[in-house]
Design a protein around this nucleic acid. Sequence first.
DNA 1: GCTGAAAACATGGACAG
DNA 2: CTGTCCATGTTTTCAGC
Lengths: 151, 151
Amino acid sequence: MLDPINCKIIKTLQDDARISFAELGKRVHLSAPAVAERVRKLEAAGVIRGYRADIDLDKLGYPIVALVQCRVFRAKEKQFKQLVLDSDEVIECYNVTGEQAFIVKVAAPTMPMLDDVLERFCTLSDTNTMVVLSKPRDRVLPGSFVDAAGR
Amino acid sequence: MLDPINCKIIKTLQDDARISFAELGKRVHLSAPAVAERVRKLEAAGVIRGYRADIDLDKLGYPIVALVQCRVFRAKEKQFKQLVLDSDEVIECYNVTGEQAFIVKVAAPTMPMLDDVLERFCTLSDTNTMVVLSKPRDRVLPGSFVDAAGR
DNA sequence: GCTGAAAACATGGACAG
DNA sequence: CTGTCCATGTTTTCAGC
């Protein structure tokens, strides 16, 4: 399943998910129908979950991103999870090891809007807010996988 | 630029970036050439940065994801940034507010492999490792934007 | 996994609002 | 300036191998 050709297909679609099967086939030295069939199988196996446009949140009017560490109060966990799911500003939420700990990623148009969200969270947890200044590394695949897949 | 039609185009390409312009046109009630032109402009403006396959890291052999909070030692910041860029296992790194603070997202095939990475990081920073147990929320666009774009 | 034909799609130009 | 329509070349897809 994860032979070198499929690895390269994954890496290539990670780079540009809208190239044609003809072009993808060229890059992995396979015909278009052959590569289309491999992609179909990778999708069916759940290795490829889908294809997403990579959007610049800043240009959409959400210049502020914050990571909020939340130590959820015992007996408030259910409410907290609901708040996470109900909050428009929450784009990611990780349940992590450590006592009732969550890391919540929030996008906001303005600082007052970020503050609104934080106020809602601190009624259910002890929060530690870290505003994102920059993102020196941002990718999906580990470097070791990309290297193994070749260029 | 960000009129309701473009918002819906962004939302739709966020859902499935490989649909045809013909299909995308149908969904926003525009002809294929018209929608292709809008997409071209959104790309040129940098709102759409590209298109990526959404890959299941678990199925690729990296079942372990951890968020590592690093308080970087003064005078080691340059070395630390280089280590982040050189480490295959690092998939994301956020520079956040707070004294020399970083949140590093690491993907690893096994626990011993995660441990290896952490050992390298703790020579340059005080680390606090949070292993990700689950991700109850995972999206790119804030809910408010998706709602505004319509369905 | 390859080839080849038919249908769907992308793309460029002419032109209307 | 942004849309539609239409013609042409690509791309996808399916059959047969």
